[in-house]
């Protein structure tokens, strides 16, 4: 990657005087700038990833000084564990349903993309659930779903519909938590698309209008293609957010009823912290990590490509 010294002044981004570089072979200056960040990031992020892989081969309660090497037994036990499969299945639900985030976010963004009085504050009111913590959102929705007096059943009752109690119903609980999770996620996607819409080329829209494109046709053939950068980020962040979610499950149900709303992130926490099975927990984390690596790799590949062009 080191370019020949004579090009120093021509190429942007080349820093060092040619002399020093020739002496050492390595350009030290950037590494001095990088060192503190790399050291803390390696300590708290990069190295622990490898340590988790290693720990997943041990039987360890997190307290005793000795760990027992058991090879791949944690993984073998994991694949026999019903709770693992329930959690994995729920992760798939999260992944799929969370993709409503970009879709609904785009719909609201289009709906709000008007220059009328007080629109700024309206947009902010749509957006601000994004800055609420998972705990607050979990409590807000727990109250909303509360079976006896919650607003949801009050509304259902007003339409003469029977009461439901989403958080204690095995079939409703996961969609109910996902709906709570979508609330801030939609807000985030909306803001990405609102920003994207301001960058859409007006001339192309005019040209398409003259050609008679309107409504959905215009949206599909002219607008959405131009929103690709926003869509890319919205989908990637939503996907990763879906796999990462933990707070809502912990706050709203503790994985219940009977473990039916557990997801891998929560299952891992429960096994390691509540049941003191650190090695087993590490194995769950490794599986979750491997699933997410697919998406992370996809994102990095896209990023490197757009860097090179």
């Amino acid at each position: 990657m080191n370019s020949p010294p004579q090009s120093v002044s021509l190429q942007p981004g080349i820093a060092l005087p040619a002399k020093r570089r020739r002496l050492t072979g390595i350009n030290l200056v950037p590494w001095i700038f990088l060192a503190p960040a790399v050291i803390v990031f390696a300590t708290y992020v990069v190295i622990p990833i490898f340590q988790s892989f290693w720990l997943s081969l041990y039987d360890w309660d997190g307290l005793s000084p000795s760990k027992k090497f058991i090879g791949l037994s944690n993984y073998a036990a994991l694949f026999q564990d019903d709770q693992f499969w329930t959690s994995l299945k729920n992760n798939v639900y999260w992944l799929v349903l969370f993709l409503l985030g970009p879709v609904i976010g785009l719909a609201i963004a289009i709906f709000l993309n008007q220059k009328v009085y007080a629109m700024r504050i309206v947009k902010s009111l749509f957006f601000f659930p994004f800055v609420l913590s998972g705990v607050v959102i979990g409590l807000v929705f727990s109250w909303f779903y509360e079976p006896a007096h919650g607003l949801l059943n009050t509304i259902l009752g007003a339409f003469g519909l029977p009461s439901i109690s989403p958080l204690s119903d095995e079939n409703l609980v996961t969609p109910a938590i996902i709906a709570a999770g979508l609330w801030p996620q939609i807000a985030y996607c909306m803001i990405l698309y609102l920003t994207g819409l301001t960058a859409v080329d007006p001339e192309q829209i005019e040209a398409a209008r003259i050609d008679g494109a309107r409504g959905m046709k215009m949206l599909w053939h002219v607008i959405i293609p131009q929103l690709r950068p926003a869509t890319f980020i919205a989908v990637v962040v939503t996907t990763i957010g879906a796999l990462r979610s933990f707070d809502l499950v912990q706050v709203m149900t503790d994985g219940g009823p009977f473990g039916s709303s557990s997801i891998l992130a929560y299952f891992m926490f429960q096994q390691s912290i509540t049941n003191f099975r650190m090695g087993y927990g590490a194995a769950i984390a490794v599986v979750l990590f491997l699933i997410m690596s697919v998406f992370i790799a996809f994102f990095l590949r896209h990023m490197i490509r757009s860097e090179r062009s």
Binding site: Y44, V45, I47, P48, I49, Q51, S52, L55, G62, I240, L243, R244, F246, L264, A265, M268, F269, S272, M278, G281, A282, I284, A285, V286, L288, F289, M292, F295, I296, F299
Partner: peptide, 11 residues
């Protein structure tokens, strides 16, 4: 972007 759980036990 990594899941927090992969860092949890070592950290």
């Amino acid at each position: 972007f990594v899941p927090f759980q992969i860092l949890m036990v070592p950290v």
